[in-house]
Design a protein around this nucleic acid. Structure first.
Lengths: 151, 151
DNA sequence: CAAGTTACTTGTAAAATGCAAGTTAAGTTA
DNA sequence: TAACTTAACTTGCATTTTACAAGTAACTTG
């Protein structure tokens, strides 16, 4: 169900719509951290490998919520915490992330080969896994479990 | 064949690599114009719907060439013209573009439904088409043919 | 209740972007 | 062949975005 058109887009092109929402240096990394690493709080995002600045993080989260890609709820057991979750629309970005990972892995010298191999082996199954882990009443998978990182 | 790692990336993550190369408001639109609309000269890119500024266009083309996504050659029949072409690496972005288009089409109110339906109907065939049209000694398809735009 | 945590905001410097106006080399026209 | 046009940029400057450092308010913990 398409959302109503954002105020003033530069064009009607669907690719442009995606680029206007996601075309910056941080948004997709935040989504990656939610989708693949199970991050859900501000503090966790702040500690991402790439080192996002706190004001930029706040701004990006605000925009992702405004776009309907992310929702928030309050942590019932800790009044300080805000929990950030992917919406359906956000989960539907999994194929985009996957193709971007596979493209970079094919053409650049990058790390996290475990994830890449998993995606290469069976893309469909990988996407099903993401979808399943994010099915309503999410319990983000394998957080804090020691061993190889997921992203 | 992976390229050697770019000077200083923020992290080893393949998604981050993609974002560092393509995560801005213009790069993917330029690639779209090459891939889907058959654009190949500076002037054509300048006239894109979204209205890129000339200095930004020059900068993005320079970067895309540096990343190995685009190459240039001189037009043998007009010494003023520079011809920009997608490399294999650039053509391999087709699945990324496709997923971004399908995502936006599914969740936003966008135009160019012809392209979207074509992608939805048979993604594999669509990608094969792009690949075929860009096979060595490219003659970009259907440029200047009247009727519905391709992108 | 004092000391931490969490999720931010504010201020400011640095970098990226956008806009208008050149510039240069090559091609076209009268 | 001189004047004009075109293609691909560059330059200068104002505006916007990003980055970095330092707060702050609400809440929890010991």
């Amino acid at each position: 169900m398409p959302a109503k058109r954002h105020a003033k887009r530069r064009s009607e092109c669907p690719l442009n719509a995606s680029v206007e929402m996601l075309g910056d240096r941080w948004s997709l990394l935040i989504i990656r951290d939610m989708m693949l690493r199970g991050f859900r709080t501000y503090k966790e995002f702040l500690e991402c490998y790439e080192g996002i600045a706190t004001n930029i993080l706040a701004d990006r989260l605000r925009k992702l919520v405004a776009y309907g890609i992310v929702t928030t709820e309050l942590d019932p057991s800790d009044g300080r915490k805000v929990i950030y979750l992917l919406t359906e629309k956000g989960i539907d970005l999994a194929p985009v992330l996957t193709e971007m990972v596979l493209w970079a892995a094919a053409h650049e010298d990058t790390g996290n080969q475990a994830l890449v191999r998993q995606m290469q082996k069976d893309k469909t199954q990988f996407l099903a896994g993401v979808r399943k882990r994010w099915a309503k009443q999410v319990v983000p998978p394998e957080r804090k479990r020691s061993g190889s990182e997921t992203a």
